[in-house]
């Protein structure tokens, strides 16, 4: 999980969030959750492996994860700048409810992490037919 492996995870647990692009938190490398980061929904190892010979990855470049390796991320993860409703668990210093995050604490008890996105995003369209034989350019 990108969120669990993220170098900014300690800031999330401590309740230190970027509130506006370029603000103090952004300059200090705080958590991008409130800027729409989809790290909590993204099951990849980018924070560990990184890109271009272990040089960096999008969150280090100051932008939220868009879960771009996720199947049908274009339906499930967009809009990219909309904050995920709540991410349960791991709140060491403050809980998601104390952060006042939208729907938090209202109806989400018992909803799994992977179900969360679908509660705010449009229902996925049925997949198109599989091509018989596909050439990649």
């Amino acid at each position: 999980m990108v969120h669990d492996l993220c170098e900014r995870r300690a800031h999330y647990d401590a309740g230190r969030f970027v509130a506006e692009w370029g603000d103090e938190g952004h300059r200090k490398g705080w958590c991008l959750y409130k800027m729409g980061c989809k790290g909590p929904e993204a099951t990849f190892n980018c924070p560990i492996v990184q890109w271009n010979d272990h040089t960096s990855w999008p969150v280090r470049a100051g932008h939220g994860c868009i879960a771009c390796a996720s199947p049908r991320f274009w339906d499930h993860m967009s809009p990219f700048y909309q904050q995920l409703p709540s991410v349960p668990g791991f709140g060491v210093e403050v809980s998601a409810g104390e952060l006042g995050l939208g729907l938090a604490g209202v109806t989400l008890a018992g909803v799994t992490v992977h179900g969360l996105v679908r509660t705010i995003m449009p229902a996925p369209k049925p997949p198109p037919p599989e091509p018989a034989a596909e050439g990649k350019n």
């Binding site: 890109w51 960096s56 999008p58 932008h63």
Partner: peptide, 15 residues
């Protein structure tokens, strides 16, 4: 790697 520094990755820098 200059794109990775300024955009997190190449292809498709994200900054």
């Amino acid at each position: 790697k200059i794109h990775a520094i300024l955009g997190g990755k190449n292809p498709h820098p994200q900054s």
